[in-house]
């Protein structure tokens, strides 16, 4: 709220100035509202962030680096990168395919498919984790068969990757779908009538038109993949150096009262969050600028 008020104020063009003039509250009320928002943000966002970094660096840079260089920490970082490295590309391919199918075609069961894609958003991650345990665990449906064939999924790396894929499943599709729908079929039809194959049309027309939404979706998907705790926690088994991801490692180390080490790894995740935020803002700014250019020069003959 605070940001939107200052934004309209600074861009005092004719009509919006008049509108904001009519809708402006008294100065005291404005300060109260802005103040409330700032206090709220400080307590719930800035302060915790500051605590993460200050706690991580409490005993100097040496202790901080030691916390990160710990073999268990490094293995957790590697596992997180592996899980995200597999989950994000897979969900990118899936998300593009799903958004394309849902955005460009009409078929029976379309709304059901959309609901299914949203499922990981609505189901608690812990429940998602349990679903995998029930499927692949020792007492699970496929567990005994898997054990007989020497395949371990639960309490092993495959389970963590599966859980991560499931939880981050909707991000790309959800970001892409509105963009793909809004663009309609005209350009694709033009490409096909010019002799382009389906693949050429997709590669040269559909994908470039959706690129900002795609990048945005991938960034969000990646942030979630690296930060996921609940579902991964259930299937991981918390085996140090083997099945701990970064969030799990932080919890384990923190429970051992190794605060600096815990906060050191936590600071890496927080940093990832900040970078995600910065890239996201940059992309939104870029996309808005592209839209403005597209609108300018529309009218005159």
């Amino acid at each position: 709220m605070a940001t939107s008020l200052t934004w309209t104020g600074s861009k005092s063009s004719g009509p919006s100035f008049a509108a904001s003039g009519a809708l402006t509250e008294s100065a005291s009320l404005r300060w109260i509202l802005i103040g409330t928002a700032l206090v709220f943000l400080s307590v719930f966002l800035f302060l915790p962030l500051a605590v993460v970094f200050s706690s991580a660096l409490e005993r100097g840079i040496g202790a901080y680096l030691a916390g990160i260089r710990d073999p268990d920490a490094l293995s957790a970082i590697r596992l997180t990168l592996l899980a995200a490295g597999i989950a994000v590309p897979l969900n990118m391919v899936f998300g593009v395919a799903a958004a394309w199918a849902l955005g460009k075609f009409d078929f029976i069961g379309k709304s059901i498919l959309i609901s299914l894609i949203d499922l990981p958003f609505s189901v608690s991650p812990v429940v998602s984790g349990f679903i995998y345990v029930l499927m692949f665990g020792l007492q699970g449906l496929l567990g005994p068969w898997l054990i007989d064939h020497g395949i371990r999924i639960i309490f092993a790396v495959p389970g963590i990757i599966l859980a991560t894929i499931f939880v981050t499943f909707p991000f790309v599709a959800r970001e892409l779908l509105p963009t793909v729908q809004a663009q309609g079929n005209d350009e694709e039809e033009a490409a096909v009538s010019l002799g382009a194959s389906g693949w050429q049309t997709f590669w040269h027309v559909t994908l470039p038109n959706a690129r900002w939404a795609l990048i945005y979706g991938v960034i969000l998907c990646n942030a979630r993949a690296m930060g996921e705790f609940g579902a991964v926690s259930v299937v991981s088994g918390h085996i140090r150096g083997l099945t701990n991801t970064m969030p799990l490692h932080i919890e384990v180390v923190y429970d051992d009262y190794q605060f600096v080490a815990a906060f050191a790894v936590a600071s890496l995740l927080a940093l990832l969050g900040l970078v995600t935020l910065a890239v996201k803002s940059l992309i939104e700014w870029q996309a808005r600028r592209a839209a403005q250019i597209a609108q300018a020069g529309g009218g005159e003959p």
Binding site: E187, A190, A191, S193
Partner: peptide, 30 residues
């Protein structure tokens, strides 16, 4: 694709991320 028909759309349907040159060249390049 196989009818060799030139189609002009009401709202132009130009490829927005291609220049005028690339738009016109598209049919030959694919």
């Amino acid at each position: 694709r196989d009818r060799r028909v030139g189609f002009v759309f009401q709202h132009f349907a130009l490829f927005r991320y291609m220049t005028v040159f690339e738009n016109i060249a598209f049919g030959l390049r694919v």
